[in-house]
Design a protein around this nucleic acid. Structure first.
Lengths: 205, 205
DNA sequence: ACAATTTTTGACCAAATGGACAGAAAAACA
DNA sequence: TGTTTTTCTGTCCATTTGGTCAAAAATTGT
């Protein structure tokens, strides 16, 4: 456990189980609200056992956050030249929307962290993330300048995609409460249709 | 304090001070993360004094939330028939954006509460709020049907306004990190310009 | 000025919680 | 099989924290 030789199968498995349980707990109650005991219970093991594998609650939280970050920005990484720039942006938006649908817990964890000042992500936000966004913003700005899409501020366009797609995961309770139970099943199809049409209208030259 | 006669001036003032301090604390750290001691410190009084006025931390939190709800939905209440439907929607969007700019702490408090399941707001979300949104959605649907604005799902349109405007308050740390310090001063002007253009393009018939 | 009421706080308490520790159980290795 | 290493847990501890309580200080009313 200490000297990082080879992680045994059992070690990887247990760590996975704990991380899954922790994601559950953290997304529900936040770092402060989630307790080691609850995580241990969800993971089906004792509290000291959880500490044995990660050292502290904070360490679990931080590791989860870091490992999720890569997954989270992958769709943006994949945004690139395409037959049709508008289609590329729509694909990006759709992938983000799908991530909201498939990974609401991850979305909520990030949202909570950033909402509270992102104390353990600041460097990455203004470092890697800023660099990535700047790069893709330049790409979009190019399309914009060439008249392939409408003239828009690319940074704010990216923010709008983040905002609108993550809204459905982060504030799902509100969305479902306002729409009513009966519209819940087709919710993400509705959102997809709305957002697609919306961005097409807003972005086509 | 017990029998609710007339609240003296001093009582109202102290309660105001405590609520302001609590808003500060809750928006920074959430319900769980904010401590009575920190609230008391920010309010410049002792911990038991805070309890004396509100009974419990939870009570402060709940009262804050309830009293803010009215303010929060007022812009939507004010959405009504207008010379120009599109202008009416833009005005609504702008008011929401201004609220994000002027009341980021309130925005964060709501966001955190909803993110964590809105345990003490559910009834209002599916009650009053749903009713209000349904009413305004019908109004927008009317405009849409008459061809005064583009055909859009009015509920999702409202969500998109919530999402995009509140994003700037709730995730300000991320927005500022990605844009860089130098774009911070004119941020809300940029956002206003972007969103206005964006919604105009998306909504005009 | 004096009594009654309200406001304010220091001291204290009980519950919750993150984590330490020693040793049991199990697994790996010889 | 015996030994060593890893995995696992019961028990305990220190800290944090929401809240109580008695009494002091200030205010109000007469």
């Amino acid at each position: 456990m200490d000297s990082p030789r080879k992680a045994t199968r059992i070690q990887r498995e247990k760590r996975e189980i704990i991380l899954a349980a922790a994601l559950d707990a953290f997304s529900e109650d936040g770092l402060r609200g989630a307790t080691l005991e609850k995580i241990a219970e969800k993971a089906g093991m004792s509290k000291p056992h959880v500490v044995y594998y990660f050292g502290s609650k904070d360490a679990i939280y931080t590791e989860l956050l870091q490992s999720l970050l890569d997954v989270w920005v992958q769709p943006l990484r994949d945004l690139s030249e395409d037959a049709d720039p508008l289609a590329a942006i729509l694909t990006y938006m759709r992938r983000k929307l799908r991530m909201s649908q498939d990974m609401p817990r991850e979305s909520k964890m990030f949202a909570t962290e950033i909402l509270h000042g992102a104390p353990r992500m600041r460097p990455q936000l203004s470092g890697e993330l800023k660099a990535l966004v700047d790069e893709k913003a330049a790409l979009i700005a190019g399309w914009s300048a060439e008249g392939k899409i409408a003239r828009v501020d690319p940074h704010h366009l990216i923010f709008s995609i983040w905002a609108m797609t993550q809204h459905y995961a982060d504030f799902d309770i509100q969305v479902e409460a306002v729409l009513g139970e009966e519209r819940k099943p087709g919710l993400y199809d509705e959102a997809d249709a709305f957002l697609t049409e919306f961005f097409v209208r807003a972005l086509r030259p």
